[in-house]
Design a protein around this nucleic acid. Sequence first.
RNA 1: GGGCUCGUGGCCUAGUCUGGAUAAGGCACCGUCCUUCUAAGUCGGUGAUCGUGGGUCCGAAUCCCACCGGGCCCGCCA
Length: 549
Amino acid sequence: MLMFTDYVEKIHSAILKEIPDFSMSELVVGQPGHGDISARLIRYLIKKENSLIISERISKDIKNLDFVQDATLENNYLNIRIRPSFIFNAIKETIDATGAFPDVFQDPERVSVEHTSTNPTGPLHIGRARNSVIGDSLARLKKRVGYRVTTQYYVNDSGKQMMSLYLGYEKFHKGEKPTVELLLDGYIKTYKYFEEVGSEKEVEDLMERYERNDADLISSVRKIAAIMLDGISRDLSTIGIKVDDYTWESAFMITGETGVVMQKLSPYLHDEDGAKYVDIPGLRKVFVQRGNGTSLYVTRDIAYHMYKFSQYDQCMVVLGEDHKEHTKSLAYIMKELLGYNNELSFVFYAYVNLESGKMSTRQGNSIPMISVYERLREKSLEELKKRYGEEADPSTADKMASSSFRYHLLKYNPSKPITFRWEDALDFNGETALFIMYSMVRASSILKKVETSVNEISMEGISESEKELLLNLYLYPYRLTEASRNSKPEIIANYAYQLASKFTTFYESTKISEQPESIKKRQLELVKFFLKILEDSCEIIGIQKVEKL
RNA sequence: GGGCUCGUGGCCUAGUCUGGAUAAGGCACCGUCCUUCUAAGUCGGUGAUCGUGGGUCCGAAUCCCACCGGGCCCGCCA
């Protein structure tokens, strides 16, 4: 829960005295051009005879509030300007007292955010990385607003893909030291081989053995999976992502949890040639057990969610949009058939495509996340060398690459497909992480170089660009709330850019070092607020702080 | 064929949930600004009947219907 001085709430209360059913959503905050907060009155006044009198009365009430500078009626909008000193102090008091704006109150709710969970059959490619980037930012966002968050990776080490990976190693590289490259090569060859012989029997046999708890096989497969998973975890760590919990899917088979699931579902099971399924209204049959008695993805996923529900109040899962149908079945089974009331929600994202079409690990035409990162890093270092020559700091290049990569995949609405283009990914101009980092550097630089001896802060002669910046800083808790409520970390990505942009406008219009002392003091404070809040939002979206660019 | 989803200047996007004041940015293009806290930047300009056609409404990019185009799903795969 976020704690801050909420002027919107105060205005809302004031309007409620005249219009008892006035909705909070009719208060528009931070829309440029029309006042800091605008009250949309039209809906409530349109049918009323005495609308003019009511709106005048509201206007008068609002003007009487101590924090309101001015309120004007235009086209059934009441445009309200807040006194800059009140916004300034609202931010300053919270930062001085707690070191952050807004302050946060720890929520007792335990939240699990599951992301990535890609089959360990190859290195992380940029499509899957979209999942990781969204998921990690979502987790950080939920944490920021006060939830107790744990991130989860569900390791699929028991399905068909995994068995094919194992088979590929056994068939094409047995005896060699298993590496990511070697395993991947075997995996691709195996799928080609299936096509050639027109049968997948070999892998089906493996799956059956696996589910019958063949200890040797399970341990061999896990060894192979662990090699791939290590690679994926390493890739994730280069972009600052660390997962708290890894849960191995095979665990639910070994411990017999899938059997428990079948037992609990038994009243709802139907039979079709020995295979078991449940009927879901509006959807089709959902099979939970094969004819040969082995379990299916849904079954194991149910077991996994039973486990998660025992530990968390709320479970969120980031998934590719192709899993939508699956999650409908899962949600129905968990709630309606098994009676769980824990909150279960999903964030779906559309795939990242190439200009040449889709990516596929099996077909070997995917772009590994790490190669994009490396290119970004090279370009960053190159640019740094242009500016600093041999003094260029390689660790800055790491931060530029990681931040750029994450921002590029996060800033879009997840439901929109992305076409990956190298020229876009490697662009450092415009709406990019670099612009945001650059504004951070400029602010840090001011704080290092400009000083003032006075303590009194004057609001005199505050400019439009300063007011704009101040207002946008104040908007942060509203954006956080909106982003968290809708599980949309991209709102914070857009906010950070907008904030950086407001700062840049202010920066270009004012030479702080040349201002009279009491104004300089105010502006230095403003720069401090900016840096504090920008860093706060950047922490969520994975943009790292640098001192020099 | 059925279901879901996306369609906003030449290109990439925000806004759509919760309808409301001149549709907000970036890239590219044209012009402007570095002896002054970092020009990866600034300021200004050109450029959009918000896929199409209907409907609801005082009011539609936003809601409803139909159609067109792209993506995804419709396995005893995951």
